[in-house]
Amino acid sequence: MSTFEKRNIISMRDFTKDEILHVLEVAKVMDEEPSKYAHALEGKILATLFFEPSTRTRLSFESAMLRLGGGTMGFADPGSSSSKKGESLSDSIKIVESYADVIAMRHPVEGSARLASEIADIPILNAGDGSNQHPSQTFLDLYTIQQEKGTLEGLKVGFMGDLKYGRTVHSLANALGQFGCELLFVSPKGLEMPSDSLEELARMGGKFKEFENFEEAKGDLDILYVTRIQRERFGDDLDYDKVREGYNISKKFLEGCSPDLRILHPLPRVDELSAEVDETPHALYFRQAANGIPTRMALIALVMGMVS
C-alpha cells in the first residue's frame, strides 16, 4: 500500500481494496476519538473551490477541516470566482495552491479534478467532477455499510432508482464489486445501469443481476441503496407518475424484507423514501450523512500526512 501523504483523492478507481479499508479504519478512529485530532491541523488551510454549488458537501468538508483544528476558505458560488471572467481552471488552481495546504473541489466538468491534481503540488480532494466521480461520498457510503454490517465482504446489496445518471451508484457498485458483494440493480426502463459500468463489473468478476421491480429482488438483501428518480428524465408526467409508484419506499413496501435490511440514500430525498421509514430500524441514511464528517476528516488527515 502506498502512503497517503500528498496523495490526491480523485477517483475510487485509484484505490486498491486494502487502501479503501485503510481509509475506513482511519475514519473509525476519527469517529470514535475526534478530540484526539482536534488540533492536528492547526495552522493549515483547506480551500473549498465549488465551481458548482453543493452546500452539503462543502459544509461537510469545512466541518471536517475545522474539527481537525484547521481553517477553511473558498467560494460556494461560481459566479463569485474568476472562472466567471473566463479564467482557465489551470490558472485558478495555480493561484489557489499558493494560498492553501489542501483543496476540496467540485466542478461541473468531468476530469477537472484529475487535471487540477496534475497542476497543483498540494493534494486535491475531488468533491464531484460532473457525472464522473465523487469519491468522498463513496468512502462514506462504504464506511456506513461496514460500520453497520461489520464487513464489506460478500454482502447482498440492492440499488434502486435512477441507476443511469447516479454517479454515487456507479462508483459504490464498482467498489462493492471488489469486495465480492452480490449486486442487484432495480430500475425503470431507460434508467438502467450504463452498459459500461456493468461491463467493468463483469471484467472484475463482480456478481450482479438486473430487475425492473423490487418485489423480485428484495429477498434477503442486506443493504438497499436508493436514489431519486427525477421528473425531467421522463418525456411526460404520466410516465413519471406511473414509474414513481413502483419506486416509492414506504413501510408497506418493505414488508417481506429482512428485518436486518438497512436503507441508504445519498440525500436529498423527495418522495421516493417516505418519512414513515425514518422511524424504522431500516433507516440508515441520516447516520450515512453524518458519517461524511469522520470520513472526510480521515481523507484530509491522510493526505496531509497527519496520520499514516
Binding site: S88, S90, P108, V109, S112, L115, D129
Partner: peptide, 12 residues
C-alpha cells in the same frame, strides 16, 4: 468523445 470532458474544454 465526451463533450463534457475537461480535455474538450481546457487546452491539455
Amino acid at each position: 468523445p465526451n463533450p463534457n470532458c475537461v480535455t474538450s474544454i481546457e487546452e491539455i
